[in-house]
């Protein structure tokens, strides 16, 4: 059981790093925002694994929800390409 949890945590952290690098590398800003939402969702699961469910709820609501919506609203006001 412990080894399965360790494997899950390793996969989550790997996905987190891949998301963080690809957000910085993506030229299309809408794609970058969607990858950033996925980053926030994985980060919420990581907070849950770190036994901080309070922060996990906040991260899922603010990071994956409100931040994405506000950034997409900003894109609709400005340009999509970098």
């Amino acid at each position: 059981m412990v080894i399965m949890t360790t494997i899950l945590n390793m996969l989550l952290l790997l996905f987190l790093i891949v998301c963080a690098i690809s957000v910085a590398k993506t030229r299309d800003l809408l794609s970058a925002i969607i990858i950033f939402a996925a980053y926030s969702l994985i980060m919420a699961v990581v907070w849950q694994q770190l036994e901080a469910p309070d922060i996990a709820i906040t991260e899922a609501a603010i990071g994956a929800g409100v931040t994405t919506l506000l950034l997409i609203a900003t894109i609709s006001k400005t340009r999509r390409e970098e």
């Binding site: 469910p53 309070d54 709820i57 906040t58 929800g65």
Partner: peptide
Amino acid sequence: IILHGHLTPGGSFSGGAVLGSSMILFAL
């Protein structure tokens, strides 16, 4: 989440963010 803020994880900030994003979802 808001009303169980003193019993379970979460509280005013988390629950308020969930409430606000539901309204934003409706407006979008």
